[in-house]
Design a protein around this nucleic acid. Structure first.
Lengths: 338, 338
DNA sequence: TCCACCCATGCAAGCGCTTACATTTACCAA
DNA sequence: TTGGTAAATGTAAGCGCTTGCATGGGTGGA
């Protein structure tokens, strides 16, 4: 009975090609050290058998997987899609694969998934933001797994990271809003607990507000999950106040989408009744009506750079990276003078 | 020099606990067959060393990974997000992990990723739709990897699948549109080449159109990628015709989003100048302005069921599944009488 | 013609686990 | 006390690959 009915292994290929397994292995990996003649024989056998190397066996023997793990807070909306796409494409060009999982913004789930990815032999990891337990960093350190943080950059942190300054960026936008004459600002923030990006963005607004001589007590803030519905609900709450805000600054574009949608339902015109701003500049932002004024984040560049630097880290071609990217304000129709 | 500096293995744990590796292994897997006493000792050692089992080694020895692979056409937009989320949650409840990759709607990439996932030892696979080369199915068959298809259901196909009838669903919507009095319909379809769902949806519209006694030559159709921008561009093209359509039926909600956005830019009012319909009922649909009339797909149920049935397939508790889910039309503001 | 080298190849030792099978231990009935 | 049985544990053989080292054959210089 031919063995061909079961899954072919290196051994099968070697036997079929009349060489040793070592030779087959070398054919499949290092291009060199095998004569043209032999390689041809081997490749023919590989094709004939439909051989595909067993990943686990390879990982075990080589202690290298050419796999990168990424854990993002959510796949539900497009916040991370563009950046991750670029990350993945760059990785792919360099012969790496990407394993993605989502933590649903839950730190304990993130920790679990980090362990799972490391256990799977990920050569490196991409994580979002800084905030996580020290024990997680210790674990990564101990296992020697190169890790790069993205979507955030804080000059006082030393961990390899590629991102932008959420705080300064949001402050820039808030300054702009205030300079346009707005004096009644309300904020729909993401949940800051366990999310340094959300916290920094909120702080950016507070910075601006305070620096312009206003009282933080006069700055209504609602924290709510990054979902369209929540943004809508928060909008309704904020507009129910006796002193209606003239502008609502949202922690990201998803919340802003909800706010604008709800504004329409409630009969408010944006921006003449109330302005709305976002953050991230997801693709949808410019297609909202009115188009959303927001902070443009260079997602593609961030993903690409993160991939390149992470691979350097893995190859030992560098020991640390810290790169700050520039964001810009995109003025669109959703923001006007009060 | 203590070995604790390097990554702890089963051996280390066994030594620390004063038992054999077999016992430790049994502790970590089958709950039974180990005395309470021993288990405690072992667990203590595990904690102390911070031991995490090596996934590859485990996969190799056990020939089982408790990992499911899913390949979806895109992560860029939310089409698959809800369904995948439910799929993943159900899997997780049953102790399985999910590996996701995206094929960017490219069959050859999908084939490559299928091989990669199988090589990684995926116990089962989730794929979208029916259309792929026979060789891919043969490969899966040969490797004995259980595979379930989702997001589509065709009664004439026998492969395990869980989905809905794209053709009948879209036809239902088209019938409705026509019954409202529309006689000038234009279609923005996804690229049908290599995408059976897109093709079926388009066929559904054609079915209805023909069944109502109209000529297929009078049905303008543009095929374009599932992107907001493309939807917008297609909309502009269709409206540039001498005979403007009274309704534009889109292959999915993403295209419809682009169409509505572009309509505003061009100064058309939806639905009084032109109606727009979508398909999928992504979260955004109801937040568009006007809210989008579309076909509601039970994504959550589909994901959940797919997970359950796939696991049954893997466990050999069943040999085949074919389940058709019901969709429904959601009437919202974007569709009105001409 | 001979020797030193180098390149292509083979040999075999793991990588860290699981599990069939063997062994030991504990306990109970006779 | 002793034999028998079942439960707990240990032994060791792989799982499919990579890679350091050994080997052998071919090449070119003297």
């Amino acid at each position: 009975m031919p063995k061909s009915l079961s899954i072919p292994t290196l051994d099968d290929v070697a036997r079929a090609a009349g060489v040793s397994t070592a030779t087959v292995s070398r054919c499949l990996n290092a291009e060199k050290k095998v004569s043209e003649n032999t390689r041809e024989k081997v490749m023919k056998a590989v094709d004939a058998l439909g051989y595909v190397p067993n990943f686990s066996a390879r990982a075990m023997a080589a202690k290298r997987t050419y796999t990168i793990g990424a854990i993002i807070p959510t796949m539900e909306n497009a916040i991370f899609a563009r950046g991750l796409q670029a990350f993945q494409e760059t990785l792919h060009e360099q012969g790496y694969n990407l394993l993605v999982s989502s933590s649903a913004y839950r730190p304990e789930l993130e920790a679990e998934q980090i362990r799972a990815l490391v256990a799977r032999g990920a050569d490196g990891l991409l994580l979002i933001g800084y905030e996580r337990e020290q024990s997680v960093y210790d674990y990564l350190e101990k296992r020697g797994t190169p890790t790069i943080l993205a979507w955030a950059y804080q000059s006082n942190k030393t961990h390899p990271s590629i991102g932008f300054d959420n705080r300064a960026s949001m402050r820039m936008l808030a300054d702009r809003v205030i300079s346009m004459g707005h004096r009644r600002i309300a904020v729909i923030s993401g949940i800051t607990d366990g999310n340094d990006r959300a916290e920094e963005r909120l702080n950016g607004i507070k910075d601006s507000w305070a620096a312009n001589g206003f009282n933080l007590d006069d700055l209504p803030i609602i924290q709510t999950p990054y979902e369209i519905e929540s943004g809508g609900a928060a909008f309704a709450d904020l507009m129910a106040a006796p002193q209606k805000p003239t502008v609502i600054m949202c922690g990201n574009d998803v919340l802003a989408t909800g706010a604008i949608s709800r504004a329409k339902e409630l009969g408010y015109d944006v921006p003449s009744d109330v302005s709305v701003t976002g953050f991230d500049d997801i693709e949808l932002a410019k297609h909202l009506h009115p188009p959303l004024t927001t902070v443009h984040v260079p997602h593609g560049e961030m993903g690409r750079t993160a991939a390149e630097e992470l691979i350097k880290l893995i190859d030992g071609r560098t020991t640390s990276v810290r790169r700050q990217l520039n964001v810009s304000i995109v003025m669109r129709g959703s923001l006007a003078r009060p």
